[in-house]
């Protein structure tokens, strides 16, 4: 089955990352790189997203399209990246996510087949 992992950052996580020294931050990124390499056979693609301040949302249910600044939900938790994976079932996806070394929240969403 195919799933998308939505990586979600919190304000605390962003602040912690900000507070790190350059070597420490590099190590944090290296851990994420290692995780990606470990699971390379299941990863079908994905990307890191730029910050929510770069987001633009368009509302189409009001007659004319309404263009707005910002992500569609304003909140303390924002989607910061995604990865598409292909695994046997939800348990395998859960096992993979259990060792994710990055942001503190991951949403697992199956793709429509």
């Amino acid at each position: 089955m195919k799933y998308v992992l939505l990586f979600v950052e919190t304000e605390q996580f962003a602040a912690d990352l900000e507070a790190m020294g350059p070597t420490e931050r590099e190590r944090a990124y290296a851990r994420v790189g290692e995780w990606m390499a470990t699971h390379a056979d299941k990863i079908r693609g994905g990307n890191k997203l730029q910050g929510p301040q770069t987001a633009t949302t368009v509302r189409l249910d009001q007659g004319e399209p309404v263009v707005m600044d910002g992500p569609f939900v304003e909140g303390k938790e924002v989607v910061s990246g995604y990865t598409e994976i292909e695994v046997a079932d939800l348990d395998e996806a859960l096992r993979m996510v259990a060792t994710w070394p990055g942001c503190p929240l991951v949403e697992i969403r199956p793709l429509e087949s």
């Binding site: 089955m1 799933y3 046997a88 079932d89 939800l90 348990d91 996806a93 096992r95 697992i108 199956p110």
Partner: peptide
């Protein structure tokens, strides 16, 4: 069905 929750006994580590 839709999220692919498996029908099996969890492995030892789970």
């Amino acid at each position: 069905t839709e999220a692919g929750i498996p029908y099996r006994i969890p492995s030892d580590d789970e």
